[in-house]
Amino acid sequence: MMPATLVAEQVLNGLQFGVMLFLMSAGLTLVFGVMGLINLAHGSLYMIGAFACAAVVSLTGSFWLGLAASLAAAAAAGALVEMTLMRRLYQRGHLDQVLVTFALILVFSEGTRWIFGAFPLYLDIPPSLAGTVALPGGLDYPLYRLVIIAAGLAVAAGLFQLVSRTRLGMRIRAGESDREMIAAIGVNIRALYTAVFALGAALAGFAGAVIGSITSVEVGMGEPVLILAFVVIVIGGIGSIKGALVGAILVGVTDTMGRLLLPALFGTFLEPADAAATGASLASMLIYLLMALILFFRPGGLFGKVA
């Protein structure tokens, strides 16, 4: 029997993982919803955020300046990419978009390695967020992870506000439903697209810096996250921010709980070493099975409009 604190802690971990996935997925789904663009290089923006943060922290010693730099660098890279390349791709098919953004991954990854070298960079959480907090029920949980959950939920709330209440959000919604119309009523659609792309990039960069602080800042760090983010938005329904949030938390919790429960389940009838290996093998496939299952019943995802 598993202790209740372990299960509770894993639920929190799953939530934190899900919130991080949401930050990645939100940008992807927004860019797709508004511009109809699929961006494989979204993971590179995550990496750029982490590297910018690490570089600024090592120069200034301030995590908060690093965090600001990660937002700025990723947004700038996003805006630059949008203005030089993506803009030419909106009218093209998804195939060209996939290829150009795949090529961008090569350019960003190898370029980053060129500038920063092949070794991982150092980046740690700020001292003020180090340590653990005692939660009710006798559970000590890292403060930083609680802050990630809170920050992620705050960003989600902010995004919903932005899309439903502000002028920019109104234009985004208008752009989603009718692209010609919005240009006709005089909205500067180029600026709008650049802004949306930069916003999505900044969210990815933010996630990169926040997660890079507790993982490893290295070239290629964005790719596994990118693929998970795809799973998230397929489950949630492409273009839907609400879907991204629900999908992200579903994937985060399923993955984390699967890694805990499956080996334990197999442990009831297999040798410990075999159970650990088999359980871990299946756990790594679990979210894809979840995706297949959801697609089977809802081809458009949970909150998707059309398949």
Binding site: M2, T215, L260, A283
Partner: peptide, 24 residues
């Protein structure tokens, strides 16, 4: 004794789940 042996995913970046098991 071996308390537990755990296999993680190759390339995994978040070890919160494993650390929780160590804690417990």
């Amino acid at each position: 004794e071996i308390e537990a042996e755990v296999y993680t995913e190759l390339g995994q970046t978040d070890y919160a789940a494993e650390i929780a098991q160590i804690r417990a």
